[in-house]
Simulated scan of single mutants.
Amino acid sequence: MDLVSGIVVYVILWWWVLFMALPVGVRRDDAVQPGNDAGAPKKPMLAIKLVATTLIAAVLWVIIDQIIRSDLISFREMIKDWM
């Protein structure tokens, strides 16, 4: 995987993991103040989720990179069969 492809794969993985991590551990605020949304989380823990997202995406990226480099899954043969 070249540099640009690696960055694109990492960014896609990062956003994918972030969207999965956002609802984890969310508790609604029971004492809603005027002007606040009733569904707003009490403590969103965004800093922890961003760090966890970065680490998980990095691990997944390394796994995907190793699979691509080892030719365990290769689309080159499939393309040759089509042509």
Results as ranks from 00 to 15, higher is better:
1 M>G: 09
2 D>P: 06
3 L>W: 10
3 L>E: 08
8 V>Q: 04
9 V>C: 07
10 Y>F: 15
12 I>S: 12
13 L>S: 02
13 L>V: 01
14 W>K: 01
16 W>S: 08
16 W>L: 13
16 W>E: 00
18 L>F: 14
19 F>G: 00
20 M>A: 13
22 L>A: 04
23 P>S: 08
24 V>Y: 02
24 V>N: 05
24 V>F: 10
24 V>S: 07
25 G>L: 05
25 G>W: 01
26 V>D: 01
27 R>C: 03
27 R>A: 09
29 D>C: 06
29 D>N: 14
31 A>Q: 14
32 V>L: 06
34 P>A: 09
34 P>D: 11
35 G>V: 10
37 D>V: 02
37 D>M: 10
38 A>T: 11
39 G>N: 15
40 A>E: 15
40 A>L: 14
41 P>C: 06
41 P>K: 02
42 K>D: 11
44 P>V: 05
45 M>K: 13
46 L>A: 09
46 L>R: 05
47 A>S: 10
51 V>T: 13
52 A>V: 14
53 T>L: 03
53 T>G: 06
54 T>V: 01
54 T>S: 05
55 L>N: 04
57 A>G: 01
57 A>V: 02
58 A>S: 14
59 V>N: 08
61 W>N: 06
61 W>T: 09
62 V>S: 02
63 I>C: 07
64 I>K: 03
65 D>E: 12
65 D>A: 14
66 Q>N: 14
67 I>Q: 11
69 R>P: 01
69 R>L: 15
70 S>F: 12
70 S>L: 15
71 D>L: 08
71 D>H: 15
71 D>G: 14
71 D>M: 09
73 I>P: 11
73 I>F: 15
75 F>Y: 13
76 R>M: 06
78 M>F: 15
78 M>S: 10
79 I>Q: 12
79 I>F: 14
79 I>R: 15
80 K>E: 07
81 D>L: 12
82 W>V: 08
82 W>E: 02
82 W>N: 08
83 M>P: 05
